[in-house]
Design a protein around this nucleic acid. Sequence first.
RNA 1: GCGCCUGUAGCUCAGUCGGUAGAGCAGCGGCCUUUUAAGCCGUUGGUCGUGGGUUCGAGUCCCACCGGGCGCACCA
Length: 478
Amino acid sequence: MSDSELVSQRRANFEELLALGIRPYPNAYDATHRVADIVATYGEHAGEALEAEHVPVRAAGRILGLRTFGKANFLVLSDGVATLQVYIRQDSVPAEAFAMFKLLDFGDQVGVEGRLFRTRTNELTIWASGLTFLAKSFLPLPEKWHGLQDIETRYRQRYLDLIVNPDARRVFDVRARTLKTIRGFLDARGYLEVETPMMQSIAGGALARPFVTHHNALDMKLYMRIAPELYLKRLVVGGMDRVYEINRNFRNEGISTQHNPEFTMLEFYQAYVDYEHLMRLTEEMFAEVALQTIGTTDLTFGEHAISFAAPFRRLSLRHAAAERASERLQRSVDVDMLRDEATARSIATALGLAVPEGVGAGKIATEIFEALCEDDLIQPTFIYDFPTEVSPLSKQKPDDPDTVERFELYAGGFEVANAFSELNDPSAQRRRFEGQLADRARGDAEAHQMDEDYIRAGKGSASTASSCCSPTAPASAT
RNA sequence: GCGCCUGUAGCUCAGUCGGUAGAGCAGCGGCCUUUUAAGCCGUUGGUCGUGGGUUCGAGUCCCACCGGGCGCACCA
């Protein structure tokens, strides 16, 4: 049977409804409850209690199930969050309502008026006394048991996925609660939420390839931002000592279930604190988000049980890399060996890693870490003290110029946050940018571009400050 | 970009050694006044991703292209 035939059958049912004098698209339905509210409020009430209370309800929703028995029928009503059964007896509803019911299709929307009771099998149900037609679904929906499996269809026809797969809605719910919790957490600590430019003349603040666009009136090439960092830091220069932004960033790179070209990220800045402070703040925030969104800090991610109870484990990057390299190579590798370019390079080669010429010890150490350690960081772990070479915007440690005060948080094998003490010496910042330009000249397309305005802003005296950014994928909370 | 897998009814999937297209659900017509993936009887529905090739004969084998999934690379 062709698609159009299934559609025309539904259309025929619709025509019959019109012939009955049913108003096809009413402007509103005066519901007393949402389906989810009824389930939440009366889900635990016993049948006798419901009979005694005689609870009257009117609720609207989509028909996600039909079980017909001639004169006694059941339909499953969904409001997108919860489902509730409706019992429709021929002798309990007006004749025209019963005639209308017989023309309903899976997917149609109706309003139901009635009272709550429990069936013999103890299921909470509305005993319908009235039925109102609200909207026709002309699309044949996926079957109820296997649902919609095809991943492409699920993403391209998200409405179908939402109708038939309850988990699809849950992702939206968890995401919304996550963002709400983060905002509440930061607002309560005196942070101000801002929005900064998404189209920038220089795409800076991160190492990534940007999308390019064009402004007609200015006849000017613009980049979609890869990070809000440099603009947020300008606000810090202007005296905003605690700011954050939750918004989209655009990176012109590979697409996968873990990498969306346009993704939402949180970035926040706090003046007069260093990265130690941010580590404590970050672990508090993750624990709070977990508690507020799923009610516990202990969750299951894939095959792993993960605990987001603070404090999190801490491990320096070079220690993590050296430890793993030792295990892998069956010989002693220590942190100092990773600070010497020739030695680090020979270790990388022994590990089978291809390291380009002209790359320093810092970048080599970072590559060893990424290749050997990342996937195994299941429990939340702060990896801290990054090589200066890979961190052009971070402040060096007072006693170690090759190392910056920076950390990344890992959980479930993913990087979930990146933070550092902000470099606020404009002369040092210029030298760092120049180093990046040299990398770019050697062919590193992701090296940072020079940003004169950012340096000029820095000359206006940026506070000592720290910032943290984190993609707000619900992966951390599901 | 590379590798592996995949595309058959609205949905979920079978289809053996190459022999002329199948099931369940959905739909349609019946029966049934507390069902739970309701059940029972009957029944409709296909350009087997597209194009070429091999063959007496292709859903099946070969080639190309298109779409999709996973892994790698890149990256968050």
